[in-house]
Structures are given as structure tokens and as C-alpha cells.
Nucleic acid binder design. Structure first.
Lengths: 151, 151
DNA sequence: TCCTTTCGTCAGATTAACTGACTATATATC
DNA sequence: GATATATAGTCAGTTAATCTGACGAAAGGA
């Protein structure tokens, strides 16, 4: 077929980010499934990323993750049903509940962080230690600029 | 509240990629809406990215985008209804149709490429020309490695 | 000609988000 | 202290973007 895509050599920065992000996600969640947590999906990271060490309220989680309470409740519900979270009443506020990690949930968080570091190390192997370091620092700068604009 | 997230200083590479990718996407599709194409959503890029200049078959598009024919058909349907695509019978195969861009579709593709370049230039302003160049090259290397592994 | 593969569609399910409306509890104001 | 307003979480319903399975029609090979 002589029907090559139009955007053949035109790889936008967005496309590069998407491809690398998706590959990383695939590796991390694939490995997590292999380690015994096949029920954890990428969307769940919104919960793990934003939970405080002593647990957090649903509303707080939703706010941090930039999503609605309802959407966060849906994610928490799934993780709770799978035994990664438990939720206890907030003694200081009768309306609220505190969501916190179970032991199994702690294991998932630890595995997620470990696997991310592993994948990052594998990237460094592939493109070079130095370049990988600069890649990370460039992204950190960029993200800081984004967060400075829209806090 | 002394309930900061666990992953506070632990920004994984995946998180950095996600944040920058999402910010870029938001800028590009926001600007695209402002330019008169509010109906174009990020998922549609799977179509624009993979269409050949003379149009392509649905099956080809799906294969290139790494999704099912049904999913691609759903995206194409929306773009067709909005007048960005038309589909004509494939003269060489009675089962197939060729999907191609209308003038309006060409305008969207051009705008997408232009806006991506604009955002990339804005990133260079924020983090420095040199660093942005290295960022792009590091990502290109990484993506090449990914594609070398799983072709 | 007959068998198998391929192209696209129909039908239905799932995931991950959304909006709007609501209850119960807290907090602030008079 | 009574009343008004704000906040925490839930219920119900919707949408977008994927998936799987089953299928009819056309093409291609033996």
C-alpha cells in the first residue's frame, strides 16, 4: 500500500509524550498484574497518588486529583471492594469518612513506586544515563512552569 | 490539614509525562475549539494521525492506531457527521470504503499541527531552547527504542 | 466451485469520566 | 438559640471511548 499517514515524519511533541507515557503505563500495570494485582488499573493511580499517610477524605482526594467527588467515589469503591482501601468515620465530622490504605493497598503503592523506578532505570539504559537525567529535569521544569501558571 | 499525599516529593517519570502530556493536550484542543472546531476531541487524533493523503480504509486506520475496527468506526462516524471526513467506495474491493478528509478536515489537521508546534515553542520559552531540544531528542530516542522492541 | 479470509457492521458490555438533585451534618450570623 | 448557608457524601442518569462476539457480503486461493 502506498498509503502512508500524512503525519509520517511530523512527530509532534504531544505524540512523543503520548507514546512514551503509554508504553510506560503498559509496562508498569502489566508488571503489577504479574505481581498479583491485576485488578489495579491506571485510573486508580489517582487514588494512590493523592492519599495522605493517615488517610484522606473523599472530597480531598477528588479535589487533589482534579475530578468530581462522584468520580473519585467510583474509583474508591472499586479499590475498597478489592480490599485495597477501607473507610472509617471521621470523628471530627459526622458527614465525612476517612479513606485509608489496607496492608494490601500499601503493598500496591509500594509496588507502583518500585515499578516506576524500575521502568525509569530501563529507560536510562536504553537512551543513556545522562540523557535520561536531563529528560527528567526538563520535564520537572516544564511541570513546575505549568503548576506556576495554573495553581 | 496535615494530610499531604504520600507521593509528595516522589514524582515518578510517569507522573511527569502525564502532567505535561495533559497540559499540552488541554492547550491544543482548547485552542482548536477557539479556532472554530469545538467538536474535535483528543481521541479523534487517532484518525487524523493515521490517514493517508489519498484516504485510507477503516481497517488500515484501526490497525495503525492499534485499536479495533469497531472503535475506529465510532471515531470516523463522528468526524463524518461533523463534515471532516467523507467515505467513498473502494473501486478495487467491493467490501471496502476509503475514508478521506474533506476541506474542513484538512483545515483541522493543519490547525492541529500548527498548534502543536506553537505549544512546543511555548515550552521552549519556558524551559529554554536548548533544554527543549534535548527533551525532544531524548523522547525521540526513547520512542525509537520502544518501537524497535515491539514493532 | 468451494473454502477461507477479510471488510465492515450490528449488538451489547465496560470503564471512567461528567451533571444535577438530594440528605445529613456543620458552621456562621443575627 | 434559631436560622441560614455551606460542605460531605450519595443517588440517578448520561456520555465518550474503548472492548468482545457474531455476522453478511465480497474476495481470493486450491
Amino acid at each position: 500500500m502506498d498509503d502512508r499517514p500524512i503525519t509520517e515524519q511530523h512527530r509532534t511533541l504531544g505524540a512523543l509524550l503520548r507514546l512514551s507515557y503509554e508504553s510506560m503505563q503498559k509496562e508498569v500495570y502489566g508488571a503489577l498484574a504479574a505481581r498479583g494485582f491485576p485488578e489495579i488499573r491506571p485510573a486508580h493511580s489517582a487514588v494512590f497518588r493523592h492519599l495522605g499517610p493517615a488517610g484522606s477524605r473523599l472530597t480531598t482526594l477528588a479535589e487533589r486529583a482534579g475530578m468530581t467527588k462522584q468520580s473519585m467515589a467510583y474509583l474508591v469503591e472499586g479499590l475498597q471492594a478489592a480490599g485495597h482501601l477501607r473507610s472509617v468515620p471521621d470523628s471530627s465530622d459526622g458527614r465525612a469518612r476517612i479513606v485509608r490504605l489496607t496492608a494490601r493497598g500499601e503493598a500496591v503503592l509500594a509496588a507502583l513506586l518500585a515499578l516506576s523506578a524500575e521502568v525509569e532505570a530501563r529507560v536510562a539504559e536504553r537512551i543513556g544515563e545522562k540523557r535520561a537525567g536531563r529528560l527528567r529535569r526538563a520535564l520537572e521544569l516544564w511541570v513546575a512552569a505549568i503548576e506556576g501558571e495554573a495553581p
